[in-house]
């Protein structure tokens, strides 16, 4: 290959890279992340057992998800949207008496503790998912995510991204009421 051809091919490189990227974007658009159906919808939550944030503290396992309708919230102290939705979780737990469990995703336990000390702790129990294994089993796309689990421990709904007041009022709370009947 002559130097000139090589040079011309090199100039084509940016376009090639961009076209590949553009293809992914197009693909990405067909999958609205906030509507990504979880593979787990209406299936039992994956079996797992996570340790607590500190030694001796109770963690979270799939056995905890049986018996009543509850939420599982995936959060991390480094995640900004988590901070935005946190006051809402606090209100849900306190004013509506909703049981919320947490999977603390790829986080330092100290940082997570500090986060909860600052923002309040709405969680009944917290499992520390340091390497993100359990989150993968749940099919977590990014933090934060929230799952609605029914009495039989089945995943019934998945919300991607921070919960907003209208999500809670129009979707989460009606669903909890319905499932609790």
């Amino acid at each position: 290959m002559s130097a000139v051809t090589r040079h011309r091919l090199l100039l084509l490189l940016p376009l090639a890279v961009f076209l590949i990227l553009g293809g992914y974007f197009a693909l990405g658009l067909t999958r609205d992340p906030s509507k990504l159906p979880s593979m787990l919808i209406d299936k039992p939550a994956p079996s797992f057992a996570l340790p607590g944030l500190s030694e001796g503290e109770k963690g979270l396992s799939n056995a905890d998800l049986l018996g009543k309708v509850q939420l599982v919230n995936v959060f991390a102290s480094w995640c900004a949207p988590c901070r935005v939705e946190h006051p809402l979780l606090m209100r849900l737990a306190k004013e509506q008496g909703v049981t919320i469990h947490a999977i603390n995703y790829k986080d330092k336990p100290d940082a997570a503790q500090a986060f909860l000390a600052q923002m309040g702790n709405p969680y009944t129990s917290i499992g520390a998912d340091k390497d993100g294994r359990v989150a993968i089993d749940f099919g977590v796309y990014g933090v934060p995510e929230t799952y609605v689990i029914d009495k039989q421990g089945r995943v019934r709904y998945r919300h991607v991204g921070p919960l907003m007041p209208f999500d809670v009022e129009e979707t989460i709370l009606p669903m909890i009421r319905e499932l609790s009947k």
């Binding site: 990227l21 992914y24 995640c79 993100g132």
Partner: peptide, 19 residues
């Protein structure tokens, strides 16, 4: 920024955050 999006297209689930 795009890693979650790119890997999702491959069927992997991963989140790259502040760390």
């Amino acid at each position: 920024t795009l890693m979650p999006l790119l890997l999702d297209a491959f069927g992997h689930k991963i989140s790259v955050g502040a760390p």
